[in-house]
Amino acid sequence: MAIKKFFQRLFNWELWNFYVLYAPIAPVWLWYCLRSRSLWFFTPSNPTITFGGFEGEGKKEMYDQLPQSLVPRTIYILNTLSFTQVLEKIKAAGFTYPFIVKPDVGMKGILFRKIDSEEQLAKYHERIPVEYIVQDLIELPVEVSVFYYRYPWEQKGTVSGFIHKELLHVTGDGHSTLQELVTNHSRARFRMEEMQHRHGHRFDRVIPKGEVFYLSYAGNHNRGAQFTNLHNEINARMHEVFDALSHHTTFYYGRYDIKTGSIEELKDGKNFQIIEFNGCGAEPNHIYDCGMSIWKAYGTILQHWKALYKISRYNNDHGTPYWSYKKGKNFLKEARRHFKVLEQYD
């Protein structure tokens, strides 16, 4: 079994380690650094987001800039508050169970949880070492990602990627245990250590026939979500929606994670909520789960890097400075220390 998994990983580039996947094209990134004479050439890309949204930015600054009608109700909780104070804040804001909690500064779905009860919230608050968000659980049925970029000297931008997300889950058959369902799942079996950590106490449970058991509520590739490429659905109406958002926020480059009632409603700019905006550190995740060759995937990534470089260079030429080497180094060091701490509690 171990040998089979090894060869499955070897011949499926989507399962490769991040650094292994990106190593062959890393010289292109270095070339943009040299051309800009800045290791942090990307920092002017989104001028109103810390570090351009590459890594380590807080979600609050993103939510504050988006139209409030398009983001879930959100409050911020200091981990140093007493649990009584937490409950008072949540009650005052009008939240009811279930809702979502996640770190204000987070990534890759780390410590993203759905909270169903006061007991679960108490355990989360007791453990989490940083400030976190309490946010409405958006029940809209369709979850998508939209990658968008706009050159600052142009009025209209490009929706370059559009995918549907299906959260990592198993469906019960009435006789298999959760562990057996995970072991036989095409994606979850490669995440057995994570599944054991999260759901090991339920592994002996037999999932009733037809019942859907979500293994993760984080809709990203890092957490095993399944993507379906919707590139053929991109049209002029969708471009208008995201052009308007870009002009409202001055977000020039990144990926929107969205829940909506339907694809058609999103195209019309109706009935959707923006769960996250990921800035210049966002991966064009439409390269995954669509049968794309690694060479085409590299071409897509390089296309986006070129756009990122041009946006950043223009903004720098028009008054948004590159971060200094020292400032960027210290910020990145602190961000990675922060994420390392989060991973210990995930």
Score class of each variant (00 low, 15 high):
Thr43Asn: 07
Gln344Trp: 01
Cys290Asp: 13
Ser36His: 06
Met1Glu: 13
Gly172Thr: 09
Ile75Ala: 09
Lys89His: 13
His185Ile: 09
Gln179His: 12
Asn222His: 12
Lys270Asp: 09
Leu266Val: 01
Phe277Glu: 09
Ala244Lys: 13
Arg198Asn: 14
Ser262Thr: 10
Asn316Met: 04
Phe112Pro: 00
Glu126Cys: 09
Glu166Arg: 11
Gly52Thr: 00
Arg191His: 12
Gly172Leu: 09
Leu342Asp: 07
Gly328Tyr: 06
Val146Tyr: 02
Lys306Pro: 03
Lys156Ser: 13
Ser293Arg: 01
Asp289Arg: 12
Arg255Gln: 08
Ser45Tyr: 03
Ala297Pro: 02
Asp104Leu: 10
Ala26Ile: 07
Leu70His: 08
Glu334Lys: 14
Tyr76Val: 11
Val170Trp: 04
Val105Pro: 03
Pro72Phe: 04
Gly172Arg: 05
Tyr345Gly: 05
Ala218Gly: 08
Thr43Val: 10
Ser36Gly: 10
Leu87Met: 14
Cys280Tyr: 06
Ile128Tyr: 02
Glu139Gln: 14
Gln68Asp: 11
Leu87Trp: 06
Gly319Cys: 10
Thr177Glu: 06
Phe227Arg: 05
Gly224Gln: 09
Ala92Trp: 04
Glu118Ser: 14
Ile25His: 03
Met1Asn: 11
Ile301Cys: 00
Asn46Phe: 10
Leu168Cys: 07
Pro44Met: 08
Tyr148Ala: 02
Met238Trp: 00
Ile294Glu: 06
Phe242Ala: 07
Gly328Thr: 08
Ile234Val: 14
Gln120Cys: 02
Phe242Glu: 05
His164Thr: 04
Pro321Phe: 09
Tyr325Gly: 07
Ile275His: 03
Ser216His: 14
Gly279His: 08
Phe331Cys: 10
Tyr252Leu: 06
Thr84His: 12
Ala307Gly: 08
Ile3Asn: 10
Asp268Ala: 15
Leu140Ile: 05
Trp305Asn: 08
Thr260Arg: 00
Asp136Tyr: 01
Phe242Thr: 07
Ile263Ala: 00
Cys280Asp: 12
Tyr298Phe: 15
Asn12Ser: 13
Ile263Leu: 14
